[in-house]
Computed example of a mutant assay.
Amino acid sequence: MKARLLRIQGRVQGVGYRDWLVGEATAAGLTGWVRNRADGTVEALLAGEEAAVGAVLLAARRGPTAARVDRIEERFAELPEEPGFQRRPTL
């Protein structure tokens, strides 16, 4: 199992990015969460099997149709304690 904390920059708020990522992560069997940040970025914690995390990270680089991902900052993270993949309130 591996976990990555992502900070996604670009046109990622107001374009369905969080709901799209919930669908991608859930379909891949990942746990974690996604939320908007007040600075206009999206933050996400992806946790699961290495191949599944890598596949969702690759998908996150293109995002849904209306989004434009300019940059993703990625770092190692602790595994989440909660089951499933949730959309969290804005931080």
Rank of each mutant, 00 (worst) to 15 (best):
F76Q: 15
A77S: 04
E82I: 05
R11W: 09
P89W: 05
E74M: 12
R87E: 13
L91E: 15
G40I: 10
L46A: 03
R7S: 13
A77T: 05
P80E: 08
V15L: 12
D39C: 05
E74D: 13
P64N: 10
G16W: 03
L30W: 01
V56R: 01
E50G: 09
V69K: 02
G29N: 04
T31P: 12
A55I: 09
G14E: 04
A59Q: 07
A52F: 11
L79Q: 13
G23D: 14
A44K: 01
A27H: 11
R35P: 01
L45F: 04
A59C: 07
K2F: 11
L46E: 00
R88N: 11
D39N: 08
V12W: 03
P64V: 06
E49K: 13
R87C: 12
V12S: 02
D39Q: 04
K2P: 11
T31C: 15
T41K: 04
G84M: 06
E74R: 11
G63D: 00
G32T: 00
L5P: 00
T90Q: 08
G54S: 05
G10K: 03
P80R: 03
E73I: 11
A28L: 08
V15R: 05
L5T: 02
F85Y: 04
L91F: 15
T65E: 15
E74Y: 13
A51S: 12
D70I: 04
Q13V: 03
Q86G: 14
V34Q: 01
V53K: 00
N36R: 07
R61E: 13
G54E: 04
R71E: 12
E82D: 13
G29V: 07
D19A: 14
G29K: 03
A44M: 03
L46Y: 04
T90E: 08
R87V: 11
A27V: 10
A55R: 10
R62D: 13
A25C: 08
G48K: 01
L79S: 12
V69T: 08
A60I: 06
G14K: 07
E24P: 02
D70S: 08
L79F: 08
R68A: 14
E24R: 02
W20M: 08
P89D: 08
R75N: 12
Y17A: 01
R11N: 07
G54K: 03
V22F: 10
P89H: 07
V69Q: 07
R18C: 00
R68W: 14
V53F: 07
R87S: 12
R75I: 11
R11P: 02
L30P: 00
T65A: 15
A27L: 15
A77H: 04
R62C: 09
I72E: 03
E49A: 13
E82N: 08
T65F: 15
R88D: 03
V42M: 05
R88F: 11
A55T: 09
V15K: 04
V69G: 01
A44S: 08
A3H: 05
